[in-house]
Simulated assay, not measured.
Amino acid sequence: METITPQESQALRALTALSQAVRLRAFRELVVAGPVGLTPGAIAERLDVAPSSLSFHLKELVHADLVSAEPQGRHLIYRAHFHRMNALLGYLTEHCCGGRTSERAGAAVCCEPQEAP
Rank of each mutant, 00 (worst) to 15 (best):
E70C: 04
S68M: 10
H75W: 09
L76H: 06
G73F: 14
H75L: 13
E70P: 14
R84C: 00
P71Y: 01
A87S: 15
L89V: 00
H81N: 07
K59T: 14
I77T: 09
L66F: 12
Q72H: 02
A80H: 07
S55F: 11
Q72F: 12
D65C: 05
H95Q: 08
L58K: 05
N86Q: 03
A64R: 02
D65Q: 05
H81C: 04
Y78G: 00
E60F: 14
H81M: 03
H81S: 13
S55D: 09
H83D: 05
E94S: 10
H83I: 00
E70L: 04
H63L: 14
R79E: 03
H83M: 04
L61H: 02
L92C: 07
H75P: 06
S55N: 12
A80F: 03
C96A: 14
L61G: 11
L89E: 12
N86H: 01
I77C: 03
S55Q: 13
L58C: 08
R79W: 02
V67W: 02
F82L: 05
D65G: 05
H95M: 02
P71L: 10
Q72M: 13
A69K: 12
H81P: 01
E60N: 04
E60I: 09
F82E: 02
H81I: 04
H57R: 15
A64K: 07
H75Y: 09
G73W: 13
A69H: 10
H63C: 11
H81E: 05
Q72K: 09
L54W: 11
F82K: 01
C96Q: 12
N86K: 00
A80W: 00
A64C: 03
N86R: 07
R74Y: 09
E60K: 10
I77K: 06
L92D: 00
E60D: 15
E94V: 11
F56E: 15
C96L: 06
S68L: 12
L58F: 10
L76R: 04
T93I: 11
Q72D: 07
Q72A: 13
Q72N: 08
S68C: 08
V62K: 09
L58N: 06
V62Q: 10
F56K: 15
L76P: 00
L89S: 04
L61V: 03
L66K: 08
Y91M: 05
L54V: 08
R79C: 10
A80N: 02
T93K: 15
Y91K: 02
V67A: 08
Q72C: 13
